[in-house]
Amino acid sequence: MQINVSMEPITKRSILSNVSQIFDPLGLLSPVIIVAKVLLQQLWLLKIGWDDTVPDHIARVWNRFVNSLQALDTIRIPRHVIGVQRMYIELHVFSDASQTAYGACIYIRTVSIDSTVSVRLLISKTKVAPLKTLSIPRLELCGALLGARLYNKDFSPLTPSHFLIGRPLTAPVCDDVRDVPINRLQRYQRLELLRQQFWNRWTKEYISELQVRAKWTVNKDELKPNSLVVIKDNNLPPLKWRLGRVVRTIPGSDGISRVADIRTAAGVVRRTFSKICPLFQDVDETQEH
């Protein structure tokens, strides 16, 4: 990663412009970018104009920061964060704070069937400490709160609808335009037409098959914890059905599970298997075909 810095005098405007060029949505470069954030806070305290030359000590810190960006090309962060043949997955959240800044990060720890363990960085975030002086314990609480908010982020997977309409299929329901002639539709309505056609086929050709179950005489194809599912609700249109992850299954007196607890954005709910549509099934890679 490189920042194109001209030989002109370093000003607050040029620093802000160059820092804004760094695109890091997952916070993988947080330990580096926090230096620039602290520098911008110091410039704000100096109350200098946007086009005024910054003091020498600020210019030295900025030049050192720009030179350090060249070392980022040597860093490699694997983006396949979940190991193969996984037995279970854990999210580990860490947070810390100082008088200058605080931050949090999340690691995914995967234990495979062969007992191998892999740990991968998933996401992180840093913030500059407020101008009002706070104690270290209070700043550490701010870091813990930041970590809790990272944990509560929506880590739902990408679906085909994201590529068609830029959002999941659980978006608010719009007017049905499938029977309207296409030459009468505006651009936005044409996108809605694609979305509705896709949803119609998806529900008829995919979701309906997920609910086909044989008689519960044997414990077969049982839902597994952490499986991504859609909760069917007869009182809501399909586009408003809730996404969730299975927390645990509850076996009956015969040892066969027919009920599961599911964690959703609104909390944990309990539903029967007939109301649960699993979206993705993990295939055992060791199974012989």
Rank of each mutant, 00 (worst) to 15 (best):
V32S: 05
V32L: 07
I33F: 00
I33W: 00
I34C: 05
I34H: 02
V35M: 05
V35H: 05
V35L: 05
V38S: 07
L39Y: 04
L43Y: 12
L43E: 04
W44E: 12
W44Y: 12
L45A: 15
L46C: 10
K47C: 15
I48R: 10
I48T: 13
G49Y: 10
W50L: 15
D52K: 13
D52T: 12
D52S: 15
D52A: 14
T53F: 09
V54L: 09
V54H: 06
V54G: 02
D56N: 05
D56R: 09
H57V: 10
H57W: 13
I58M: 03
I58R: 00
R60W: 13
V61T: 14
V61K: 15
V61D: 08
W62N: 01
N63E: 09
N63P: 06
R64H: 11
R64G: 09
R64W: 04
F65W: 09
S68Q: 14
S68H: 15
S68I: 15
L69Q: 03
L69F: 11
L69D: 01
A71S: 13
L72W: 06
L72G: 03
L72I: 11
D73F: 13
R76V: 13
R76I: 13
R76Y: 13
R76N: 12
I77D: 06
R79D: 01
V81W: 01
I82H: 04
I82A: 00
I82N: 01
I82D: 02
I82S: 00
G83F: 01
G83S: 12
V84W: 00
V84H: 03
R86Q: 02
R86A: 06
R86W: 08
M87Y: 01
M87V: 03
Y88R: 14
I89P: 00
E90Q: 13
E90T: 00
E90P: 03
L91K: 10
L91R: 11
L91G: 07
H92A: 10
V93Q: 07
V93Y: 09
V93W: 08
F94Y: 08
F94G: 05
S95G: 11
S95D: 08
S95M: 09
D96N: 07
S98K: 08
Q99F: 12
Q99C: 09
Q99V: 11
T100I: 15
T100Q: 14
A101Y: 04
Y102D: 12
G103Y: 09
C105A: 14
I106Q: 02
Y107M: 10
I108C: 13
I108T: 04
R109H: 04
V111P: 03
I113P: 00
I113W: 00
I113V: 14
I113S: 06
I113N: 03
I113G: 00
D114E: 04
D114M: 09
S115L: 13
S115I: 15
V117L: 04
V117E: 01
